[in-house]
């Protein structure tokens, strides 16, 4: 018999099923849009899930104020292209309100503060489900994440008390004030995402491809020149040929040396990579359980 779907077709079918299921089970879902390749893929899958109707929920972007400018331009164009509403939460607003406090030190990261702004925005928008591009292969705490991940009324994740998930049957029942995070691409790997982007011809921000940029090498992490990065004594920027494997704040996202200036070359490079894509994320390195702790507090 030839009734066979390859792995990308199966993963796509699963993600589309999850999108449709969540829209039926929740009242007011939203896509958490980080601007990275995973959330761009997510928007594409949502588009396919509801075609020819428009995507029936908005995008929510938490703006740390430390973004790559290319990401913001791309975000606005993408929202326009898909005809989807864009809701933006600013970490700066939380800082101004006093609900978030800027880290001390010369190069403060706003990465942990994102969770605060996110929870504030979810509450303000009365969003009861937030789609995220999290993948189980990314990090060990995410390996145990559910497709429908229950959050208590404080937005917290309790890894020891997760609902079992069986077959294609998803349980989105909740009490008032509680919410869910929904992860349609849970079962995808980094390679799957890149292959799918190629198969579907999905547009990406330019910084995923090799380009020249002013970079400082800080303890092995290649940080881009930006107004949010203060050079330490003895450091200086140098032009390097780099690209990004993941996207986060400019203050913590390390570049990699690369000549991969098109999708085929990026895929080749990912296949040959000897370290994980979060390997150059300074935020995961703070402690062994850094991601687990952040997730419990409401991080993506």
């Amino acid at each position: 018999m030839s009734y066979n779907l390859n792995h990308l077709e199966q993963l796509e079918a699963e993600a589309i099923f999850i999108f449709r299921e969540a829209v039926e089970q929740f009242e007011n879902p939203v896509i958490l849009f980080s601007g990275g390749k995973d959330s761009i893929t997510l928007v594409h899958l949502a588009y396919k899930a509801f075609f020819p109707a428009k995507i029936p929920f908005p995008l929510l972007h938490i703006d740390t104020g430390h973004n790559f400018p290319e990401t913001l331009i791309f975000r606005d164009e993408l929202a326009k292209r898909y005809g989807v509403k864009l809701d933006v939460g600013y970490v700066q607003d939380s800082i101004n309100r006093g609900t978030a406090v800027e880290e001390k030190g010369l190069n403060p990261s706003r990465n942990t503060l994102q969770s605060i702004t996110l929870l504030e925005k979810l509450e303000e928008g009365k969003y009861d489900a937030a789609f995220g591009g999290g993948r189980r292969d990314e990090e060990k705490a995410r390996a145990k994440e559910r497709f429908f991940s229950h959050r208590d009324e404080f937005g917290q994740w309790d890894p020891k008390n997760q609902r079992p998930e069986l077959w294609n049957l998803f349980n989105g029942k909740k009490a008032p004030g509680e919410s869910f995070r929904v992860f349609p691409i849970s079962n995808w790997t980094e390679m799957d995402v890149w292959q799918y982007i190629k198969k579907e011809n999905i547009a990406l921000p330019s910084i995923y491809f090799a380009h020249d940029r002013n970079i400082v090498n800080r303890g092995g992490v290649l940080l881009a020149e930006s107004p949010y990065n203060t050079l330490l004594p003895g450091e200086k920027y140098e032009q390097m040929h780099i690209r990004y494997r993941t996207l986060g704040c400019m203050t913590i996202t390390g570049a990699i040396f690369s000549d991969a200036d098109n999708l085929d070359k990026v895929i080749e490079e990912v296949a040959a990579a000897r370290s994980t894509e979060r390997g150059n994320r300074a935020d995961d390195k703070r402690s062994e359980a850094a991601m687990e702790d952040r997730k419990k507090q409401g991080y993506f």
Partner: peptide
């Protein structure tokens, strides 16, 4: 494969964890 804090401390796996690998023939979950 022992992902969560409690598991690493107690040396036991307490929940379902999903792992991924691939060969040129198949993707495995």
């Amino acid at each position: 494969t022992d992902g969560l804090k409690a598991e690493r401390e107690q040396g036991i796996t307490i929940d379902v964890a999903y792992r991924y690998f691939a060969t040129p023939k198949r993707k495995f979950i």
